[in-house]
Nucleic acid binder design. Structure first.
Length: 962
DNA sequence: CCCCGGAAAC
DNA sequence: ACTGATTTCCGGGG
C-alpha cells in the first residue's frame, strides 16, 4: 500500500485517547482508498472497450458505498454523543432567554391536564424556540456542511491529494473485497469516540473542523457555524431543556450506481483531458480553488443575509488542514453551467442534520429544522425534486425566515447532487439510532428504497439490517412501537408511483409487466382485487406475488414434491442450463411433432408438500438411479437412516460391509455441466456407533501418521538450523575477537539464499576490522514481510534480547523497517512446505502440537530420536536461542495414547463444534478475533464450506436404543 | 430532460 | 447427473 507520506500523517491520528480505537478503522479505510482508486486506473487504460463498469468495479462501488455509509453513521454517532456534553448544554441554556425556557416548564400535567392541549403548547413553544434560534441566535455560514458527492468526484479529489497509487497500473485489484465491515462496525460500536480527524478527511467536511465538544462550544459561543452545526447545537439545546431530543442525520453516502447525476463532462473538455494524471491533478488543484471561492461568495452575497462580511473575519480559527480541492465542485458542471447564480443558500434548502423532539403530549416525534425554522412538517426534508410540491417557497409559514426572496426554485440537479435522501437516522440521547427514513421520504417505495439497493441482491437489505442492528437500541420502548406504526402507516399511505420504473421493485405494488418468469399473482386476478390501474395496466399488491418453481426445483431446493392432482399454475418454455438437458429438450421437441417449444409447468409452494423418502428397511438404504441418495435438505433423510457427513467415511462403511449410499447434497454447475456434490454417506441408524468408531479410529491413525511426518520434518529443520549455528560458532571462535558478542546475532536462515543480503541496518562499531565471523559470513536477514499482516493471533513475542541493542542507533528507522513481530512468522517451521493446509491443521491452532517449540524440547526430542547430539553438546548454543520461544502458550502435550470409545465420542462432539464454529464465523460480526475472517484459501474453503458438515442428521423418528 | 425498451454481461 | 437469472448501460422517443 503505497501512500503519500503526507497522507500517512493524516492517517495516524495524533489524538491520544482515540488512537487505539482508530487503529481498527484505519485498515478498512486504507482499503477504501485503494479501492477507490482502482476504477481510475482501469478507466485510464480505456483500452478495455466501452463496456461500462466491469463487474469488479461494480463491486468496488458497492463496497465504497458501504464503507462510506458506515463512516457517516459513525460521524453522526459521535456528534450525537458530543451533544450530551454537560458543559455544552449548560452554556447553550445560559444563552437562551428565560421566557423561552419557562414556556416549556409550564407545560405540565398538573397545569394542563389535557394531553392534546399540552401537545399544542409544546409545539408552539418549540416553534418559538426555533424562531429565536434561527432569527436571532445562530448565524449560518454558507459553507461547511456535509454534501453528497459522486463517486467520480471523490476519485478526482483523492487523486488531487496525491494518491498516486491509483495511477499505478500495477496496482493489483484488491481482490480482498468485503473488507472487514464487521470490524468497522464493531469499532464504531465499541468506541463512541473515533478520531474525528481521519473521519473528517473521509467525510470532507469542507474544512469545518469540529474535533471535540469544545469545538461545538466554540461555535455556540460564536453563534455561528454551518447549518449542520446549527442543527446539532439546537439539538443539544433542546436536550438541555429536558426534552427528549434526537439528532437526525440524512446519510449522504456515495451512490453505488454508475453515473448517478452524470456529470456532463463539459469542464473536463476545457481541461484538455490530461492523460497524465499528475497534470490533471495539478490543474485541478488551483483551478478548483480559485474557481470555487468566487462562486461561493457570489452566491451568498446575492441570496444570503447581509452580514457575510463579518463572516470572513470570524472564519473558524482552526483551519488546520491544508486547503484541499473542493472535490465536489470539480466535476460538477451542473451548478456551474446553469445555476451558477442560484446556488441555493444552505439556509433555505433541505438540511442534512436536523432535530426531532418528542412531544409528550402527542406521543409523537416532531421534526424541527432550526435553520429554516420549520416545525412538524416532515415532508420538508426530502430534497428530491419530487412530484409533489417543491420544497422551496411553498413550504410553509416560515415564520420570518430571513430568506424571503427565495428566488427561482433551485435547480434540481444541484439540490439532488448536494443532498440525496437515502437513509435517515435519528440518534437519541442514549446514543442509539433508529431508521426513520420512511418518515421523511416522500417517495420511499418508488425511489428511496431503490436508492438503498433493495430489490437487487438480497444482500443489500440484509447488510443494512446488520448495520442498523449495531446502532439499534437493544430493547424497544413503547414509543418505538408507536413510531413504527406511524412509519408503517406512512409507507402505506404513500401515493402510488407515477412512473413505470417507480413500480419496479416497489415494496407495495406490482405491475404484471414486472413479474418475473417464475412469478404470478396468486389468487388469480379475479380473486386478487386490483388496487387500481396505471396507464391502463392493473396494479396488484406485491403481497399477492408468489414464486413458482418446477417440480424438480421444488425437490432440489426445498425437498418438496407436488401434491397429487395439482395442475401447474403456469407454463413456461423449458430452458436448459446444461448440455444434457438441452439435448433432452431437443429430442422432446422433435418428437413432439413439430409443436414448437417444450413447456414446463410451474407450481406454487402451496401445491407442494414435504417429500417423504422411502425408509431404510433392514439396514438397506434406498438409492437413486446412480446408486446414491438425494439429500438436498435434511428432511430428505429417510426414516431409519443416519447421515454421516464426513469425508472418506464411505470407504470405512464399505470396509465394514455396511449398506450405505453416498449423499448428494447439491450440484455444482461448471461450464454447462452439472456435477453432483457428495458429502458423506447415509447408513442405517443402528450402524451409527460401529461406523463412527471405525471412522474415528481410522482418522486418528491418519492424523498420527501425518503428525509424525510433520515432526520428522521439523526435527530435520531444527537439525539444520543447529548445524548452521554450530558452523557459525566455530567460525566465530576462529576469528575470535569478541567471542560471544557479535553485533546482533541474526538468526541465520538455513534455507536457500533466495533473498539477497540486505543492507546491515546498524553499522557495526568496529571500523574496518574483521571482528567476527559475521564479517565474513554475513547473517541472513529474515525475509521481509511484504504482505500486510494484521496483529498476530495469539500475540507472538519477539525473542529479542539483541533487538534492543541493535535499536540503539536509529531506533525509529529500525522500527519502521522491522515492522512487526510477525516477521518471525516467516520462519514458521512447517508453514513453508505445506502448501496444502488441511483443515485439521487450522483447527488445531489452539491445541498443543508435538512440534518442538523450544530448544529444550528439541534436545529432548533429539535424545529420543537418537540423533547424534555430540556436536550439539559440544558447542553451547547461543543464549538467545535458548531464550527464544519461552512462550507461555505451550501447553502440556496431548497424550496420543489409545482412545476409548467414549473418548472418541467426545472427540466427535468437539470436532463438530469446531466445524460449526468455523462455519458460523462468517455470520457472526461480533467475533472478537482481530484476524481477518476471510482469509481462507481456496482449497481450504472447499473443505470447510461444506454446509452440512456439522450435522449428523437423524431421522425424524428417534432411533430406539438397543 | 426524463423515461422506456432492448442488449450484453453474468 | 438433475439451473437460470439479474443488472446495468445505451440509444431512441416523448
Amino acid at each position: 500500500m503505497t501512500m503519500d507520506p503526507t497522507n500517512n500523517s493524516i492517517l495516524t491520528s495524533d489524538d491520544s485517547d482515540d488512537e487505539l480505537d482508530w487503529e481498527e478503522v484505519e485498515v478498512p479505510r486504507a482499503e477504501h482508498l485503494e479501492i477507490t482508486l482502482q476504477p481510475k486506473a482501469t478507466s485510464a487504460k480505456a483500452s478495455t472497450k466501452r463496456k461500462g463498469l466491469s463487474y469488479a468495479e461494480r463491486l468496488t462501488r458497492i463496497h465504497c458505498h458501504k464503507i462510506h455509509t458506515i463512516c457517516l453513521i459513525a460521524n453522526g454517532w459521535i456528534r450525537n454523543h458530543w451533544l450530551n456534553d454537560e458543559l455544552l448544554q449548560a452554556r447553550l441554556l445560559s444563552l437562551t432567554p428565560l421566557p423561552l425556557q419557562n414556556s416549556f416548564a409550564m407545560i405540565h400535567k398538573s397545569r394542563v391536564p389535557d394531553a392534546a392541549r399540552r401537545g399544542y403548547l409544546f409545539e408552539a413553544s418549540i416553534t418559538r424556540l426555533a424562531e429565536w434560534w434561527s432569527e436571532s441566535f445562530f448565524k449560518v455560514t454558507p459553507e461547511g456542511h456535509l454534501r453528497n458527492r459522486t463517486f467520480e468526484d471523490i476519485q478526482l479529489g483523492l487523486e488531487a491529494q496525491g494518491f498516486r497509487s491509483l495511477t499505478e497500473p500495477t496496482a493489483k485489484k484488491p481482490t480482498g473485497p468485503a473488507p472487514a465491515f464487521q470490524d468497522v462496525i464493531q469499532s464504531l460500536h465499541q468506541s463512541p469516540t473515533i478520531d474525528n480527524d481521519t473521519l473528517q478527511d473521509i467525510l470532507d467536511d469542507d474544512g469545518e473542523f469540529v474535533r471535540t465538544p469544545k469545538s461545538l462550544m466554540k461555535h455556540a459561543l460564536m453563534r455561528k457555524g454551518s447549518r449542520d452545526l446549527s442543527a446539532q447545537l439546537f439539538t443539544a439545546l433542546c436536550r438541555s431543556l429536558g426534552i427528549p431530543t434526537r439528532l437526525v442525520v440524512s446519510i449522504q453516502s456515495l451512490p453505488w450506481q454508475a453515473n448517478i447525476n452524470k456529470p456532463k463532462a463539459k469542464p473536463k473538455a476545457k481541461k484538455g483531458k490530461g492523460k497524465a494524471v499528475e497534470s490533471q491533478a495539478s490543474n485541478i488543484d488551483p483551478g478548483s480553488g480559485s474557481d470555487v471561492k468566487p462562486i461561493h461568495l457570489q452566491g451568498q452575497s446575492s441570496t444570503d443575509t447581509p452580514t457575510e462580511q463579518s463572516q470572513a473575519k470570524s472564519k473558524p480559527i482552526i483551519k488546520l488542514r491544508k486547503q484541499k480541492p473542493k472535490g465536489n465542485r470539480l466535476g460538477g458542471p451542473s451548478p456551474g453551467a446553469s445555476g451558477r447564480n442560484n446556488i441555493p443558500s444552505p439556509s433555505i434548502t433541505p438540511p442534512v442534520f436536523w432535530t426531532e423532539v418528542f412531544s409528550r403530549g402527542d406521543g409523537r416525534w416532531l421534526a424541527v429544522d432550526p435553520v429554516r425554522c420549520i416545525v412538524n412538517k416532515r415532508k420538508a426534508f426530502d430534497p428530491s425534486p419530487g412530484t409533489s410540491a417543491p420544497p422551496g417557497p411553498s413550504s410553509f409559514g416560515s415564520l420570518g425566515t430571513p430568506a424571503p426572496q427565495k428566488v427561482a426554485r433551485p435547480t434540481f440537479s444541484y439540490a439532488v447532487s448536494e443532498n440525496r435522501m437515502a437513509y435517515v437516522l435519528a440518534f437519541e440521547e442514549d446514543g442509539y439510532a433508529r431508521d426513520v427514513t420512511r418518515r421523511y421520504a416522500r417517495e420511499y417505495g418508488a425511489k428511496v428504497s431503490k436508492v438503498q439497493g433493495q430489490g437487487r441482491g438480497k444482500g443489500r437489505l440484509e447488510w443494512w439490517n446488520r448495520v442498523m442492528n449495531i446502532v439499534h437500541r437493544p430493547y424497544r420502548l413503547h414509543r418505538d412501537d408507536i413510531e413504527d406504526e406511524e412509519l408503517d402507516a406512512n409507507e402505506m399511505k404513500e401515493a402510488m408511483p407515477t412512473t413505470i420504473s417507480g413500480f419496479k421493485d416497489h415494496p407495495l405494488y406490482v405491475l404484471t409487466r414486472h413479474l418475473h418468469q417464475n412469478q404470478m399473482i396468486y389468487p388469480e386476478p379475479p380473486d386478487t382485487p386490483e388496487l387500481g390501474k396505471f396507464r391502463g395496466e392493473p396494479v396488484y399488491p406485491r403481497s399477492a406475488v408468489v414464486d413458482l418453481k418446477s417440480s424438480e426445483n421444488w425437490l432440489r431446493s426445498e425437498g418438496r414434491v407436488v401434491k397429487a392432482g395439482c395442475q401447474p399454475l403456469k407454463m413456461v418454455k423449458a430452458r436448459s442450463g446444461t448440455v444434457n438437458k438441452l439435448r433432452e429438450i431437443e429430442t422432446l421437441k422433435t418428437a413432439g411433432a413439430g409443436n414448437g417449444e417444450v413447456m414446463q409447468g410451474l407450481y406454487a409452494r402451496g401445491q407442494t408438500e414435504v417429500y417423504v423418502p422411502p425408509p431404510v428397511i433392514d439396514g438397506i438404504v434406498p438409492k437413486n438411479n446412480f446408486g446414491n441418495i438425494d439429500l438436498y435438505v435434511p428432511s430428505m433423510l429417510p426414516r431409519g437412516g443416519l447421515h454421516v457427513p464426513f469425508k472418506g467415511v464411505a470407504k470405512i462403511a464399505r470396509q465394514l460391509g455396511l449398506d450405505y449410499a453416498e449423499a448428494v447434497t447439491r450440484f455444482d454447475f461448471k461450464n454447462r455441466r452439472a456435477v453432483p456434490v457428495i458429502e458423506g454417506v447415509v447408513v442405517a441408524a443402528e450402524n451409527e456407533e460401529i461406523l463412527l468408531e471405525a471412522y474415528w479410529e481410522a482418522e486418528k491413525e491418519a492424523e498420527e501418521k501425518a503428525q509424525k511426518q510433520r515432526e520428522e520434518r521439523v526435527v530435520k529443520k531444527w537439525k539444520r538450523l543447529i548445524q548452521a549455528l554450530q558452523i557459525r560458532q566455530r567460525l566465530q571462535n576462529q576469528y575470535q575477537d569478541r567471542a560471544g558478542e557479535g553485533p546482533a546475532v541474526e538468526q541465520p536462515q538455513s534455507e536457500q539464499s533466495g533473498t539477497a543480503i540486505e543492507e546491515e541496518p546498524n553499522g557495526d562499531q568496529a571500523g574496518g576490522f574483521l571482528v567476527g565471523a559475521d564479517d565474513v559470513v554475513q547473517p541472513f536477514h529474515l525475509p521481509r514481510n511484504f504482505h500486510p499482516v494484521l496483529p498476530p493471533y495469539p500475540p507472538i513475542l519477539l525473542p529479542t534480547p539483541h533487538e534492543a541493542d541493535s535499536g540503539t542507533n536509529g531506533s525509529e528507522a529500525e522500527d519502521m523497517a522491522n515492522p512487526e513481530p510477525v516477521v518471525f512468522k516467516t520462519m514458521d517451521i512447517d508453514s513453508d512446505e505445506e502448501p496444502n493446509v488441511d483443515v485439521t491443521t487450522t483447527f488445531n491452532t489452539s491445541q498443543p502440537t508435538l512440534v518442538p517449540k523450544s530448544m529444550k524440547e528439541l534436545a529432548a526430542k533429539m535424545g529420543k530420536a537418537s540423533v547424534t547430539t555430540d556436536d550439539v553438546s559440544e558447542a553451547p548454543l547461543p543464549p538467545e536461542i535458548e531464550v527464544t520461544t519461552d512462550q507461555a502458550t505451550l501447553k502440556p502435550k496431548r497424550t496420543p495414547k489409545g482412545k476409548t470409545v467414549k473418548q472418541s465420542a467426545t472427540r466427535l462432539a468437539r470436532v463438530s463444534r469446531q466445524k460449526r464454529k468455523n462455519d458460523s464465523d462468517d455470520e457472526s460480526m461480533a467475533s472478537d478475533s482481530p484476524l481477518p475472517k476471510r482469509r481462507r484459501t481456496k482449497g481450504l474453503d472447499k473443505s470447510v464450506s461444506v454446509p452440512s458438515s456439522s450435522r449428523v442428521l437423524r431421522p425424524r423418528a428417534p432411533r430406539r436404543e438397543a
